[in-house]
Design a protein around this nucleic acid. Structure first.
Lengths: 186, 186
DNA sequence: GTCTATAGTTTGATAGAC
DNA sequence: GTCTATCAAACTATAGAC
């Protein structure tokens, strides 16, 4: 693995634990094993690093949604996989979705990073809305309402469940917060 | 208003916008109009300030829940008021609930602050569970499931809705994320 | 690509005068 | 209670050698 990827992995890990304002080049340097000045060769400024982080995260996320779509044609399967993805990202209560962690740090982010952040959530809403529209057709989800409202609600549930689970330091809180929704799936 | 309260107000405001790692004594000093060294007289360390912030916030929150309980005996009224409280706290997309903002900064908080944070969420769950139990009796909420699951889900919804609305910089996202739940209220 | 060295700023915090 | 002065440490970032 090349250094740049190694730095991105390390930065993503620490950013998802502590937020944008909660980590520094010194943290990355000590963990990757190079001097912090050397990091500036790969990412001239911390703002560049933030953009690179969000971009890569959004790409990975987008790929994951594509895989979900390929794996099953049933809306309930897709939604269950979506929730499961956020549960995995929680990493036992230690981490959050990168874009959740960065949302708090809004005021410290560059305009470019903010735009990527907004695009990330907007893409999530699009995919979820599409999937709830499918649910209305295939009947795999009980009691479905307006697809856009369902989509925004589910996004809030998984994001909020991550946060509450992290705050309480109890992974079980994520499961408790998503159980009611999952029970609507076929 | 005394200085200490003034400092707490200012600190709460900035902490709810930027998180614990996102503000400093310098920020408070410039806004309140005293030197940052003077702040240490009121709050010897930033950790002391964090604890004072969470304590005051939890007290205010607890009072607000008591007022809700006094205002109506109907579960759906109480839950609507609860959601409305989180919407107000969002402050047009600029702020989050203090405990949401601090949840991201977990790793920077003292043990004492963490304990208060966990107590805050645990108290929320207790109040919500109690209110959903009432809903099961008074029938003011349609389609109710297990009170504890409903409680944790609703907490996740309001917390997640705040976060998504702030990330997207659109207050409307909060309304969209809570609309489906609110439609279940009488 | 990585290093040393360093600049310039900001951080949380303390000592002591008033 | 608030001030000035100061501290040691951490921060992002740059210059230039290798």
């Amino acid at each position: 693995m090349d250094r740049k990827t190694e730095l991105l992995n390390c930065a993503e890990n620490v950013a998802r634990r502590r937020g944008y304002d909660g980590f520094s080049y010194a943290d990355l340097a000590s963990e990757v094993g190079i001097r912090k000045a050397s990091i500036h060769y790969h990412f001239p400024s911390k703002a560049d690093l933030a953009v690179a982080l969000i971009e890569r995260y959004a790409d990975t996320f987008s790929d994951a949604l594509a895989v979900i779509d390929e794996t099953s044609d049933i809306a309930s399967d897709r939604l269950a996989a979506y929730v499961q993805g956020y549960r995995r990202a929680l990493s036992g209560g230690a981490k959050l979705c990168l874009c959740v962690a960065f949302s708090i740090s809004r005021d410290s982010l560059s305009e470019e990073a903010l735009a990527e952040l907004e695009a990330f959530h907007s893409n999530s809403i699009i995919w979820l809305t599409k999937t709830f529209e499918l649910a209305n057709k295939d009947g795999s989800v009980t009691n479905t309402g307006d697809p856009l409202e369902e989509a925004t609600t589910l996004l809030a549930i998984v994001v909020g469940a991550q946060l509450v689970a992290r705050a309480a330091n109890k992974v079980g809180d994520f499961d408790q917060a998503t159980k009611l929704f999952l029970s609507r799936l076929a």
